[in-house]
């Protein structure tokens, strides 16, 4: 068991730190937030790193339950690849972001387990740079329905979620000099939008009282994914704080 943990850790760290070459993706799954809510006024916020095949970035998650069994969730996701921040570079690069809000309900079952269902809407964009001044900028909106099961103990917690997305690309500014195969990929996306994108996420965390660290794995399983050049998976490492710990009576 210790060896298995070691292998997983090494793999995650390698993926997080390595790989700065560039592939142009037009969508990547953000972490499926597991809210770990059990009572009214439960609240959490987290900041994490996320990485996929040839891109890296960060995420901010927050969830709050203003009413018993009802909550609001906010996610922000920002990634880049290659020399992403330097758009005047001749190197290929890419960048993307997504901000979304969701409302939903959660239902604790027993002391450790919570089921939740959130419905949300978000907007984002992806910008791929191919060469000097050659760009493809796409913006999209995403509606989603996310059922989640969360199990939390004193020292460890686990979450599993599905997310059913309707991904609608609303606008594109595409320099045709991006060339092939990207031009065909972009036209495929335009033609197919809105796309149904099912995703799955697993979360595994360790912590104590207010502070937790979670490993996250996220998978995107759209049919004909290569036709759209969507990233298949992302991995994340996030650090979260159960804010309610500080105002709840102990």
């Amino acid at each position: 068991m210790p060896m298995t943990r070691l292998y997983v850790s090494v793999l995650l760290i390698a993926v997080l730190l390595g790989n700065n070459a560039c592939t142009h993706y037009y969508y990547a799954p953000n972490t499926l937030q597991t809210p770990f809510l059990q009572e009214q006024h439960d609240a959490r916020a987290s900041l994490g790193m996320i990485s996929g095949d040839e891109f890296n970035g960060y995420e901010v998650h927050a969830a709050y339950s203003p009413l018993k069994h009802a909550a609001v969730m906010v996610n922000h996701f920002q990634v880049s690849s290659g020399s992403g921040s330097n758009v005047s570079s001749s190197e290929d690069s890419g960048a993307g972001h997504l901000t979304e809000v969701a409302l939903g309900g959660y239902y604790p079952v027993g002391k450790y387990t919570t089921f939740s269902l959130f419905a949300g809407w978000g907007a984002g964009s992806v910008s791929n740079n191919f060469d000097f001044d050659v760009k493809a900028d796409l913006s999209f909106q995403r509606r989603f329905l996310q059922p989640t099961v969360a199990i939390r103990g004193k020292w460890a917690r686990f979450g599993a979620a599905l997310r059913f997305n309707q991904l609608r690309y609303v606008k594109g500014e595409v320099d045709v000099e991006v060339g092939e195969p990207d031009l065909t990929i972009i036209r495929n996306i335009e033609r197919a939008s809105p796309l149904f994108v099912p995703e799955a996420g697993l979360s595994c965390g360790f912590g104590y009282q207010a502070f937790w660290a979670d490993f996250n794995l996220n998978f995107c399983n759209i049919r004909d994914r290569d036709d759209y050049h969507f990233a298949y998976s992302t991995v994340g490492l996030s650090f979260s704080c159960q804010l309610d710990y500080f105002w709840r009576e102990r």
Binding site: A70, L103, V170
Partner: peptide, 27 residues
């Protein structure tokens, strides 16, 4: 309100923009 909040989420889901993709290809 407890019932309304998740329902509002579903409403948000349903009422989101339905605009068709507007892609501009330029040289």
């Amino acid at each position: 309100l407890r019932i309304a909040l998740p329902l509002f989420g579903l409403l948000l889901l349903a009422a989101a923009c339905n605009k068709k993709a507007d892609f501009n290809y330029y040289y």
